[in-house]
Amino acid sequence: MEKDNHKKSGKLRRKFLKLGILSGVSAVAGVSLGSNTDPAEEPDKEETGEKMKLLTPDGKLVEVDKASVNNYPEAYISPEESRKGIPDRKFVMVIDLSKCKNARACVEKCQKAHNLTYYQEFMKIQLIQDHEDGEPYWLPKPCFHCDYPPCVKVCPTGATFKRDDNIVLIDTDRCIGCKFCVTSCPYSARQFNWSPNPSFDEEQPYSPETSVPGSLGTVIKCDFCPDMTRAGKLPHCVQGCPMGVIYFGDKNEDIVTNGDETLRFSELIKDGAAFRYLEDLGTAPNVYYLPAANRQFPLERGFDVNDEVKARYDNVPYIQKMKKKDIAP
């Protein structure tokens, strides 16, 4: 029973200050930002490129560099340990195609968390048309973490491996860069670090669970963010999606969640008639798709992206057909 309503909301007009590093906040606001990002503890912390905005108690709007998200030194999992997997878990993902509108929030959030460049995407958004008369749909494509992963069996050094918790990981400390796994994956889920990247030199112990820091000449891919699940959080793409397209969870406990709603995995795939992509290849993926029936958004909403990204779909037969008809989106 609210007694009084002095002020619980209001407006604030602000000049936007942009500060270099977190220590800048301390200087402006006279506060320290806690132990995890305390500048004194990591004096050499370089700009990571990731920004966050904060309001200081005296009303200054600041944008600061945020320490890498994938930074859990207290829970560091060594390459050796990360071969085992999280006990008693069987991770699965369910992607509801009817809700995806190519907003690309999952892609971007994943890129930030894994220190990827603009063109490196663990999650790709495909524009798939099943057959000529079918309406195309947007298909977010992570690594499928197959139960019988073609990539794992061909690896000559065991740099990529299948864990008990369903996750297929890469140990880039072990990878010799032969790229055989890239050619073996029927889903093209794997990519390669072709050129050096400043983020490779980041001072942080490498863990296959975080996939950072990367290293030149090795293979990379979606890792299902085991570091996040260990910390009781959802993978970055799931957290990033504003539409709740992506559900993630544990098949053992039969629960998946997209952050908003939590559902029984078995019921979700039963009621939604879930399918797995290219089932006939026998790879037994752990990513399920709910068909793009009764869509929440028209296809065209997916073209509400910048021109560069839009151009990436120019070679899709559907788009070319549209262009011929001169009604391209």
Binding site: K124, I125, Q126, P186, L278, R312, D314, N315
Partner: peptide, 9 residues
């Protein structure tokens, strides 16, 4: 199998 998309042309 999956057409090359979402990549620089």
């Amino acid at each position: 199998y999956l057409p090359i998309q979402d990549t620089r042309l």
